[in-house]
Design a protein around this nucleic acid. Structure first.
Lengths: 133, 133
DNA sequence: GCCATGACTTACGTAAAAGTCAAATTGCGA
DNA sequence: TCGCAATTTGACTTTTACGTAAGTCATGGC
């Protein structure tokens, strides 16, 4: 495991721009250490970035991702705050389950569309058809 | 099954604004029939709206949703176009599978966070803890 | 006939999430 | 130590997905 990554290494690995990474830092999602003014990303920063991009792919906003990230941090010492976090965890979980159902719904529609295409191709007498599902 | 829905009925059912529905029509996602100037939504429009909102929840853009919707339409008569659609279906499917993995990853992180909170609460000697997973 | 209600169009506004560009600075290899 | 590529900050621009406001139109009840 490497100790540090440069910003461009991360942009290449994740297919994003430096502007994006700096933007995430401005938004408080990332906090790389610095040598002089240059950002140095630890493996934990890299992991965090990976999680941020996961959230993005699922349609979460920066604000939501920031909130979710805060739930992963060291749990606080106060019972009320812990309960708050637990509630939010439950909420997010429900949201993710909904997204899962959405995915299954869309997959079903895609399969129907594929089926219709394959049927149509058969009607047209087109060969070289391979089924993936 | 009702024959038509008004715009406000749909806004109430799906928790969105009339502006949003009209915007989707402007963007070519919906094409309700009209009586005079008033929009009348058929059950198929309602279904389509449901699908649009599913796509939104999964983070697809209007442009992407428009493209996906076009795949659901009546399959065209030309073999090349059919193949194009099949390829896009495969791409979208792969994308949805990726999102599914993203969800599972996030769920795992949420569970870890929950676990940490529960542990912390136990340390504090806080009772009334119920586990959901 | 008048008004409330709901729907419509048009136009402008805006927040989020970067993209783009410029100018200064820095690190590092020769 | 020079020079160039990489990095930095800062400001401005763009795109997306609507929100909001202003004014019009149709219609059903009193």
């Amino acid at each position: 495991m490497r100790e540090f990554y440069t910003i461009t290494e991360l942009t290449r690995e994740f297919g994003i721009s430096t502007r994006t990474i700096r933007f995430y830092e401005d938004e408080g999602l990332l906090s790389p250490v610095r040598r002089g003014r240059t950002r140095l990303f630890r493996p934990s920063d890299r992991q965090l970035l990976r999680n941020i991009l996961r959230g993005k792919r699922l349609g979460f906003s920066i604000a939501e991702i920031r909130e979710i990230i805060q739930m992963y941090r060291e749990p606080p010492g106060e019972a009320g705050q812990l309960r708050t976090i637990l509630r939010r965890v439950a909420d997010r979980r429900a949201e993710l389950e909904q997204k899962k159902r959405d995915i299954d719904g869309m997959l079903a529609e895609l399969e129907a569309a594929e089926e219709a295409c394959l049927t149509r191709m058969a009607e047209l007498g087109v060969g070289q058809v391979s089924r993936s599902g």
